[in-house]
Amino acid sequence: MSDVIISVKDLTKRFGDFTAVNRITFDVERGEIFGFLGANGAGKTTAMRMLCGLSYPTSGSGTVAGYDVMREGEMIKRHIGYMSQRFSLYNDLTVWENIRLFAGIYGLSKSETESRATELLRRLNFTSERDTLVGALPLGWKQKLSFAVATIHRPEVVFLDEPTGGVDPITRRQFWEMIYEAADSGTTIFVTTHYMDEAEYCTRVSIMVDGEVRALDTPARLKEQFVAESMDEVFRILARGAKRGE
């Protein structure tokens, strides 16, 4: 059976005369790690905001986790997780308080919160840091915790907006291991990134230029198609034609 979790057709967003996202069409399957690439200003963020139920498309249609992006933004929000490039936990709350807050936001019961949080801390080897203020943790740890918190309600899709910005290579690796683990357990990962080596880790990659999706395939086939050695080269070939600057 075809298990499509995100399906978008001709999705468009205009701000006045400016078409930020121009008729993008793609499907994402359950359990995929879907790389969403594009230079700054290519329309990635706008597209992602529409998928997260934060802004309404001007035209086109789409569903996320079975809900309509036009009409059911609130339902979408309940079934997705989100982690932004900017650190999104509260520095002045402890690890435990942060987990409890987000569990509460997603409506988890007390006992669910308790058991999932305990398990989460064990998995991350954070049990001893339970009552540490998050602000005192190293960035890499924070980033991992952030991801764990974004998936505390076991969402069907997780949107990661440049999750590894400013993180050292070793932590970046560990972070991707977490992403793989989540994908293996059936969570779909929708990730934007600037690191082309990370693009290689994705199941499939789409590249946006000037508000349009210019390429979409597995990293291997994209390299074949553009006769390139690496994803970096593929990206540069495509981005060269961009009309919009930074």
């Binding site: 997260c52 139920g53 934060l54 609130e74 929000k77 309940r78 997705i80 989100y82 982690m83 932004s84 900017r86 650190f87 999104s88 936990l89 509260y90 520095n91 987000f102 936001i105 997603y106 409506g107 949107f159």
Partner: peptide, 13 residues
């Protein structure tokens, strides 16, 4: 400013 608002807005609250 910190960016936490974004996360709250993506949540069902």
């Amino acid at each position: 400013e910190v960016g936490t608002m974004e996360v709250l807005l993506v949540s069902p609250v």
